[in-house]
């Protein structure tokens, strides 16, 4: 874990309510992996108090070859509103890279990114990696972008520049597929007959994950999902960001001894920490309704 005083290089609005911030963060940029996040103290004040977690959208070389990172965020409260008012030269106190990110399923041929709203940026670094492999003909990349309305659709151009097929679903039918991304996904898997040889990586609201569950179990498709919780510390100390997990699935997917997962006595479930054991989980590990 690294703490950096990071200078803002740019902060631009992408769509109503959505912003992209570019930060000088050489040490974090050097080690961050797809799906990992940074924890940001927006200003040295007591309100807002806690750091705010943001997954890293991408790494890039800033001017003079200085490594930097970008985060894409939605203005939802006081903290993100303050962030949107900041500009070039302002300073942020950031800690990162944090958490356990996506793990590429190299045993599968078709890799499907499923993102909705402000969940989309968490998938981009992975998309870049998969795009490189797709360019070498090692795999196929399918990108599904979802938003409530066309105005709220972000990063279409960025994802569209990757070596993959990009599909868009808009809930009100104003553009692309008319409906939810999970319905589009179900139809796509059936039409293309790829169920046996694909993997899903998803980030979006919990309702979207819940809609993914029956699709993944019906076709036996492995899926990784990037979860969200209110966090206190982001480093595994305060135990605030727990997520209910299934014991059998957790035992199958990870080494529990080196995790923060704690199970009920003689029970079939327990709690994992989203900040350290996640934010990325295998979909069968998570119990959505406690």
């Amino acid at each position: 874990m690294i703490r950096e005083k990071s200078i803002i290089q740019g902060n631009e609005q992408l769509a109503p309510g959505f912003w992209k911030m570019r930060l000088v963060a050489p040490e974090i940029a050097a080690t961050v992996k797809p799906g990992q996040f940074i924890n940001v103290k927006i200003a040295q004040c007591k309100a807002p108090l806690f750091r705010r977690p943001f997954t890293v959208f991408r790494c890039l070389d800033l001017d003079k070859d200085r490594p930097g990172i970008e985060v894409v965020y939605e203005v939802v409260g006081r903290g993100t509103r303050m962030m949107s008012a900041m500009g070039k030269g302002d300073e942020l106190d950031i800690i990162g890279p944090l958490g356990r990110g996506f793990k590429r399923r190299d045993d599968k041929r078709v890799h499907i990114l499923v993102g909705s709203g402000v969940g989309l940026p968490a998938l981009f670094m992975l998309g870049e990696e998969l795009s490189l492999a797709a360019g070498r003909g090692e795999l196929e990349l399918v990108i599904m972008l979802d938003a409530k309305t066309k105005e709220r659709l972000i990063l279409e151009e960025e994802f569209g520049s990757l070596n993959g097929k990009t599909l868009v679903s808009i809930h009100d039918g104003a553009y692309g597929y008319h409906g939810y991304v999970t319905e589009m996904l179900r139809a796509y898997i059936a039409e293309e007959d790829i169920a046996a040889d694909c993997a899903i990586y998803a980030c979006g609201p919990e309702l979207m994950f819940k809609a993914l569950v029956p699709i993944c179990s019906q076709y036996n498709i492995p899926a990784q999902i990037c979860m969200e919780r209110n966090m206190g510390c982001g480093i595994g100390a305060c135990l605030s960001c727990v997520c209910r997990v299934d014991k059998k699935a957790v035992m199958k997917h990870r080494d529990v001894r080196s995790s923060h997962v704690q199970f009920e006595d003689a029970g079939s479930s327990g709690y994992a920490l989203v900040c350290c054991d996640g934010p990325v989980f295998n979909i069968d590990e998570v119990i959505f309704d406690e």
Partner: peptide, 10 residues
């Protein structure tokens, strides 16, 4: 195991 999930609110 402690409290249920959704443990922290600012």
């Amino acid at each position: 195991l402690g409290s249920f999930q959704h443990r922290l609110l600012e």
